[in-house]
Design a protein around this nucleic acid. Structure first.
Lengths: 226, 226
DNA sequence: AACCTGAGTTAGAGCTTCTAACTAACACAA
DNA sequence: TTGTGTTAGTTAGAAGCTCTAACTCAGGTT
C-alpha cells in the first residue's frame, strides 16, 4: 500500500474541491456557466492556477461526467444488491426507484450524462463500462421474469450487437430489448421531469414513473397485469 | 391587408437570416457556441448591430425555441391531417413517425426544446400552447382506441390538471395518461438516439421506436397484440 | 544548504455579451 | 427639394471568459 505524500494529498484535495465548486456552478446555471476563473475565486486562488490540475475546461467537464456515470452505476448496483433476496418484480422496482432518485437528487448531474451533449467531451472506455454497469443491473431480474420474444428483428440486433463486444454474454434478445426499453422509458419520464416539462400539468411524475415500471414488469412477465 | 414597408421587409429578412445563422452555429457546436459576434460576421455586419433586432442573446434563443415548438406542432398536426381518414392505430403510427422524423431531421432543434434547459429562457404562453398542440394531436386517435383505466389516481390527476386550464376539455383520464405516456416513450427513445447513446449498441433505433409505438397502441386498444 | 519540482501569480492574446455615443441612411411631411 | 425624425450600423470600451507563457515562491529531497 503506497502512502500518498502530503503534496499528493493536497493536490487530490484541491482537485476534489474544484470539482465540487464546478458542480455547484452547473447546478445553479447549467454547464455553459462553468468558469475556471469563478472556481478559482471560490477556492481562493487565481483561475489559471487550475490549469495545474486540469488540462483545461474540457478535462474538468469530462471528469465530472465520468464521475456521474460511476456514481449512478454504484447507486443502482447498491439498490440491486439490497434487494437481492426479493422477487424479480420487486428488484426491478428497487432498481428503477434508485435510478429516478439519483436523478432527482442531482438533476444537474443527470443532465450532464443524458442531456444535451456538451461539446468537447469524449466518452472514455471506462465511462462506457459504467453506463453498461447501470443497464446490466436490470438484466438479471428482467431475465428472471422470462420475457417472450416480441420483435424478432430488433431482438436479434441486440443479441448480435452485444455479442460483438462480449461474446460470452448470457442475455437473450427479449431480455436485452426490455433492458433497453426500460432505460428509454425511465429516461423519458425522468428527463422531462427534471427539465420542468411537467410542472404545469398537475400530476405527480412519481406516479407516472411507477405506472411505467409496472407496465414494464407486466410486459417482461409475459402478460398485462389486470 | 397592411402592406409592409420596404424597411419592415428588410428588417424581417435580416432577422430571419440571423436566426438561420444562429441555428447553423447551434447545429455545429451546441447552444453555448451561439455568438452574436459570429452571426454578425457571417451576415457581413458588426455583432452589436444585432442588438437592433434582438434585445439580446437570450431573446434570440427564446425565439429559436419558440419557432421550434411551433414547427414541431405544425409537422405533427400535418401528419395527423394527412392520416385523418385512416384507422386510429395508423394515425398514431403516422403521428409518432412525424415526431421522430422531425427530431432526426434537426436534432439540434429537438435538443433546444427537450434537452438540457438553456439558462435565461422563459417559456411564453404561446410556446406552451404549441407544446399542447403537439400532444393534443395524439389524443383523438388514442381516444378512438378506447383505453381502459389502469392507474386511477394518476388518471384523476391528469383530468383535474387539464380541467384547471381548460374546463371543457373532452378527454378522459386514461386518454390523457396514454397521451403523456406516449410522449415520454417517444422522447425517451428519440433523445437517447439523437444524443448518440445508442451508437455503440448495434441496433436500429427506428425498430425500437416502432416497437414502442406498437406497444402503446396495444395498450390503448386494451390488449397486448400477440 | 543547494537543487529540483510543483504550486501559484501576473500579463496578455483573443474571444464573448452588452452599452453608449456617434454617424449614415432612409422615410415622410411640408 | 429641404428639413426632420427614425432606424440601421459602427466603434470604443467595460467586464467577463479560456488559455498560455514567463516568472516567483514554497515544499520536498539529497
Amino acid at each position: 500500500m503506497e502512502m500518498a505524500t502530503r503534496r499528493e494529498r493536497l493536490r487530490a484535495q484541491t482537485r476534489e474541491e474544484a470539482k465540487a465548486a464546478a458542480l455547484r456552478q452547473i447546478a445553479a446555471a447549467g454547464p455553459q456557466s462553468l468558469s475556471l476563473n469563478a472556481i478559482g475565486k471560490e477556492l481562493g486562488m487565481s483561475g489559471p492556477a487550475l490549469y495545474r490540475y486540469f488540462a483545461g475546461r474540457d478535462e474538468l467537464l469530462t471528469e465530472l461526467i465520468s464521475d456521474g456515470y460511476h456514481d449512478l452505476a454504484d447507486a443502482v448496483e447498491a439498490a440491486g444488491e439490497a434487494a437481492a433476496g426479493a422477487a424479480p418484480a420487486d428488484r426491478i422496482r428497487a432498481l428503477t426507484r434508485a435510478y429516478r432518485e439519483w436523478a432527482l437528487a442531482q438533476p444537474h448531474r443527470y443532465l450532464l450524462l443524458f442531456g444535451t451533449p456538451v461539446p468537447g467531451y469524449e466518452a472514455p472506455a471506462h465511462t462506457t463500462r459504467a453506463a453498461t454497469r447501470t443497464l446490466s443491473a436490470f438484466l438479471g431480474p428482467i431475465a428472471a421474469l422470462g420475457p417472450d420474444s416480441r420483435a424478432a428483428a430488433l431482438e436479434g440486433q441486440f443479441e448480435a450487437g452485444l455479442a460483438d463486444r462480449d461474446p460470452d454474454h448470457p442475455w437473450s434478445g427479449p431480455v436485452l430489448r426490455l433492458g433497453v426499453t426500460g432505460w428509454t422509458r425511465m429516461h423519458g419520464v425522468v428527463s422531462l421531469e427534471v427539465e420542468g416539462h411537467f410542472t404545469q400539468m398537475g400530476f405527480d411524475p412519481g406516479l407516472l414513473f411507477e405506472a411505467e415500471v409496472e407496465s414494464l414488469i407486466a410486459e417482461a412477465a409475459g402478460s398485462e397485469a389486470g
